[in-house]
């Protein structure tokens, strides 16, 4: 059993954010490294603005396609309240990589429910290690909001059991054949995602040192 270490990555967000694509790229990256891999998704009615999650599991041999609560190594949240919603899936010491965008659903904007003031603070208060940054702002600075996907993947690239450059190649490879003009900007986005995560990691180390 002990030689069968499984990496569990939960990608979450809302319908239309690119959760499935990010999970697909992660899965392909793992396969390219020779891992067995399963990728599970909940779609269906979720396509209509609902909650979307995708479970990516890879290792020597993967059995169940779903991540058991409390065992996720990495939570990739494309939306901040969704990050808080799924944080209990993390194992102790797992990390939540959170895009700080707030997507307010109609049930909130119509006043039926409240959007939490600070979901990241809630997660931290529960003891979760959170790396949060505004991936949307980075994407906008690069001129294309669709780059959020690449930025988020860049952000977790240094936390995987294979080199970040291999994940980058998965993304860039997709564009090289279909949209070569997008290669450079995706490389840049990937790098900025990595930097954002690094800055956060540095910040939390300093914080820990000061305490």
């Amino acid at each position: 059993m002990s030689d069968n270490l499984i990496t569990n990555i939960l990608v979450c967000g809302t319908g239309g954010q690119g959760v499935m694509t990010a999970a697909e790229i992660l899965a392909q990256g793992a396969i390219a490294k020779g891992y067995d891999c399963k990728k599970s998704e909940v779609a269906g009615m979720a396509q209509r603005g609902g909650v979307v999650t995708s479970h990516v599991r890879f290792g020597k041999k993967v059995w169940s396609p779903v991540i058991t609560p409390g065992t996720a190594d990495i939570l990739v949240a494309f939306e901040v309240a969704e990050g808080a919603r799924w944080a209990d899936m993390l194992r102790p010491g797992g990390i939540a990589m959170v895009n700080t965008i707030r997507l307010v659903p109609p049930v909130v904007s119509s006043g039926l429910f409240k959007y939490p003031e600070d979901p990241v603070a809630t997660m931290r208060a529960a003891g979760v290690t959170v790396y949060d940054f505004d991936a949307g702002a980075i994407a906008r600075s690069l001129g294309d909001l669709r780059l959020i996907n690449t930025i988020m993947l860049g952000a977790i690239a240094d936390f995987l059991p294979f080199p970040a450059s291999d994940l980058e190649e998965q993304i860039v490879g997709r564009f090289r054949t279909r949209k070569p003009a997008m290669v450079e900007v995706n490389q840049k986005a990937f790098e900025l995602g990595r930097e954002a995560a690094r800055a956060q990691a540095e910040g939390s180390r300093k914080l820990a040192a000061n305490q």
């Binding site: 809302t14 319908g15 009615m45 979720a46 396509q47 209509r48 603005g49 609902g50 909650v51 309240a81 969704e82 808080a84 919603r85 944080a87 209990d88 659903p105 049930v107 909130v108 429910f113 409240k114 959007y115 939490p116 979901p119 809630t122 997660m123 529960a126």
Partner: peptide
Amino acid sequence: YEPFPRPP
């Protein structure tokens, strides 16, 4: 933690 529902 359940922030709010996000129905389709």
